[in-house]
Design a binder for these strands. Sequence first.
RNA 1: GUCCCCAUCGUCCAGCGGUUAGGACGCGGCCCUUUCAAGGCCGAGACCCGGGUUCGAUUCCCGGUGGGGACGCCA
Length: 504
Amino acid sequence: MRVRFAPSPTGHLHVGNARTALFNWLLARGHGGTFILRIEDTDAERSTAESERGILRDLRWMGLEWDEGPDVGGGHGPYRQSERFALYASHARELIEKRLAYYCFCSAEQLEAERTLALAEGRPPMYSGTCRDLDPEESERRVTGGERAVVRFRVPDGGDVKFDDDVRGEVVFSMDVIGDFVLVRSDGRPAYNFAVVIDDALMHVTQVIRGEDHISNTPRQVLLYEAMGMEPPAFAHLSLVLGPDHAPLSKRHGATSVAEFRAKGYLPEALVNYLALIGWSPVTESEQVEAALGGANPELLPVDEMARRFSLERVSHSAGVFDEAKLAWMNRHYMKQAAPERLVHECWSWLAARGWVTTRTPEAQQFIASLMPIAAGSVDRLDEVADRVQFLFDWDAAPAAGLVAADDNGQAVVGAFADESTGQLLGDKDAFRAIMSRVKDRTGLKGKALFHPVRVALTAAESGPELDLAVPAIDRGASLAPAAGVKPIVPCHERARRSLEAPC
RNA sequence: GUCCCCAUCGUCCAGCGGUUAGGACGCGGCCCUUUCAAGGCCGAGACCCGGGUUCGAUUCCCGGUGGGGACGCCA
């Protein structure tokens, strides 16, 4: 089995396309097949090397490694259409010689006029066939004479074109609704329908899995395979990914590209797992029953397990709405599952952006790793980890003092805490609890009355991580050497003292 | 306009002639708790409409309606 993902490098990798890539990849990996990456850059005006790099980077970030492609090579290259023009030209030549294709000299204005007229009259806006029966020799002379022309495919008259779609079943088109389409543009570049067929054939692609927007291109491509005496591959068309308003997911819905979701703090395995669930279900009925009986969430699956289970027969026919809330939930799950060291790496840029960490010293990384139990698991995204640990780095006396003053027991509790903790660093939970038990004895307070003043004094916030974790984290941070590469952290005893003294 | 595709809770899926129509996210409630989250438990919530076929349709067929796609010298 050979499958391919064939993006055009004209922008960022859209999550809808990423899902198409994923489904191809899952099928290949689950069946010992080959996954090919081909760059469809025949549109010279819109294609850029930068977006090609971006697409490769985003696919790799998702873990969708390809076996053949522009950067890794392979036995059926080149893998950029812009490097395959000679191949297209020779096949076009052959089709013209066999009278299966012909030169068309119609101008863009002429065609545009035809199209608007057809639309106005309620006819399908297809090419009328003006140049279809021109004398081939004559056409040849005009072209050699320098006249600009496109090459059009001669669509047979009447009859049906049919193909089997692996997700939808048999699809039939009448050839009457297919106009003679362009194979080669007047500047010699191949048109999409021509290039894909040549490439898929020459690259021995056995299974074409692509978006539903290509379904009406398929009959044209089937016709081309037949004209060239080649066996068409199997086709499968995936329904589209929509926004909440059921319109195709686009910029106005918010983030749409893989790069944007990465920048928003999503983990690749969360995005991959979520994307796989739009239009496909890996879950069996018995697993649903287990889940109902309190079993594990059946939708959370590692990618190799998804590959093992993937099949086109189970792919949905209908379009799916992209639900970021579910992605967020899934991301939280994968953040909880990730090792602290990995999360340090993933979160680093956000922490660095706020100036809380500078150089990646072992001390800094170890310290940040020790913070992960505080943050991960209670937030949805990597960027929120920063919000969750902000109290460590951005503590200010004035707001803390204000909150302490506003608490009925603020002065008493924080005063006792300051006394008891003077000069000490509470590096672990037990040290903190020992102090709190003395504060409790001195003030006679307990529960919220006891802990709330401490929380507001030490974190300058009404809510946040549990103090058993937060307090030791503050003082572990406070004990770090300046060379550790972490912004200096004010220790707890000083926070307590200053939140009593500061004017508010 | 013509052609093609699609149609189960708000959302994503399961179901493939007979089910109390199931799971997941979200939502509501309760529990846990020194706060906010997280976590645990419970709950509300759907077969687009009309015809057939059948003893019996969510399921099969036809029509309608609705949504989407295509009809380029874009891919």
